[in-house]
Design a binder for these strands. Structure first.
Length: 405
DNA sequence: ATGTCC
């Protein structure tokens, strides 16, 4: 099977037996030493029982990312600030052959300026308070977040015919709960309720965090839909949801709490997007029954190879060199007016998404359904004159709106 | 990751 199960029990680790680590990657996926050290530390967290590590594994601020952890305590620190972050895939009622890339690029630039009809009603329809950070809806954010226009590059044999239309355009949206999740995390950090101890299941702090988490998950899912609707509107099209998969959440299970730390939630039979980078293919995969071995999780993307800071030295300083990073091998382009962000998010900062998918397949967790090529990747648009962000979000009276919830 | 630290 190739699944290496390693049970560590060092005498200095205290009374608790470290969690069993199940590794779902091969030696073809590069994992650096610092990440393995973090993984080992996570296995020694309070109440940690089982850990699943995936091929996109890379270091994070509060432990390795690309991991699912089953524990009998709740660890808000592992989920961090972007509670509910995930990937959603939408199909557009627009065929690839009708795409005019120049026109589409100009239109997609206006993505975050598109009107949102009634944010309050959308929130209420999602079972959320109508005034829960409505002005943040439809915003992508920074870091690895994006909204990407894609086309089917390849459909894999025997894979679920009729699920995807090979002639259609798609939107893959990667975003989360923005300032909402950040405010929840900050609140628990300040109160000393997010630390290495973790929270006891059923305790008051556990219940408070879990309720806010559930709101963030709903809000983030709605946000991805609003981003897709803004993009569709900019492109004069309509969109239909195909898959909505969070990778920064907890799931309460009979045997404990599964923490998805940058690991996509994958129930058997689910379609799951595995994102590439600006210049590599993304994949749509179908989770197999065997995902129960990996705690109902798989990779959510390629995963970083180089950290953000070190990327600044790896990309050429010339304008022509920089502009190469806004192009991809399929004639696609990236919209990213923020130079530092463009460098940090260059394709070369990421692992090979094809290898990530190959590793997941080698461990029988998934069947590949389709490879998707990137045509337009919206990251950030700025006003050419003022250098300001091109956002249509109302910032009036923003303070305290969602902080006390 | 962060209506991004003033």
């Amino acid at each position: 099977m190739g699944i290496l199960i390693e049970s560590l029990c060092s005498p200095e680790a205290g009374t608790q037996v470290p969690a069993i680590i199940r590794r779902f990657y091969t030696d073809k996926s590069w994992v650096e030493g610092e990440t393995l050290r973090q993984l080992d530390q996570m296995a020694r967290l309070n109440g940690a029982m089982t850990l699943a590590a995936f091929p996109d594994l890379h270091p994070g601020k509060y432990g390795a990312t690309g991991v699912a952890l089953l524990a009998n305590r709740l660890h808000p620190l592992l989920i961090g600030n972007d509670i509910g972050c995930g990937m959603s895939l939408f199909m557009l009622d627009l065929p690839v052959r009708k795409l005019r890339i120049d026109k589409a690029e100009l239109r997609l630039r206006e993505l975050e300026m598109q009107e949102i009809s009634d944010a309050g009603a959308m929130l209420a329809a999602s079972g959320l308070p109508h005034d829960l950070f409505p002005e943040g809806l439809g915003t992508i954010g920074g870091g690895n977040h994006f909204c990407e226009l894609q086309a089917v590059d390849e459909m894999f044999a025997g894979s679920s015919e009729g699920v995807l239309d090979s002639q259609a355009l798609y939107l893959l949206v990667h975003s989360g709960s923005r300032g909402l999740g950040a405010s929840v995390f900050a609140e628990f950090l300040v109160a000393g309720e997010a630390n290495n101890e973790g929270l006891e299941i059923g305790s008051p702090a556990y219940t408070r965090w879990k309720n806010k988490h559930d709101q963030c998950v709903k809000w983030a899912s709605l946000n991805r839909r609003m981003i897709a609707e803004r993009a569709a509107k900019a492109l004069h099209a309509d969109c239909t949801l195909i898959a909505d998969v969070p990778h920064n959440v907890v799931r309460v299970q009979p045997d404990g709490i599964v923490h998805h730390k940058g690991a996509a939630v994958a129930n058997a039979g689910d379609l799951v997007p595995v994102a590439g980078s600006r210049a590599s293919l993304s994949y749509i995969v179908r989770a197999r029954d065997e995902v129960q071995q990996s705690l109902g999780a798989i990779s959510h993307g390629a995963g970083r190879k180089y950290d953000r800071a070190s990327m600044q030295g790896r990309i050429g300083k010339l304008r022509s060199q920089r502009e190469q990073h806004l192009r991809n091998p399929w004639g696609g382009r990236a919209i990213c007016d923020d130079r530092a962000l463009m460098v940090e998010e260059a394709a070369s900062a990421y692992k090979d998404s094809a290898q990530v998918v190959a590793d997941l397949e080698a461990h029988h967790l998934i069947d590949p359904v389709a490879a998707m090529r990137p045509l337009l990747t919206y990251k950030k648009a700025m006003d050419q004159k003022t250098g300001g962000s091109l956002k249509n979000d109302d910032k009036r009276g923003r303070k305290g709106h969602y902080e006390k919830r």
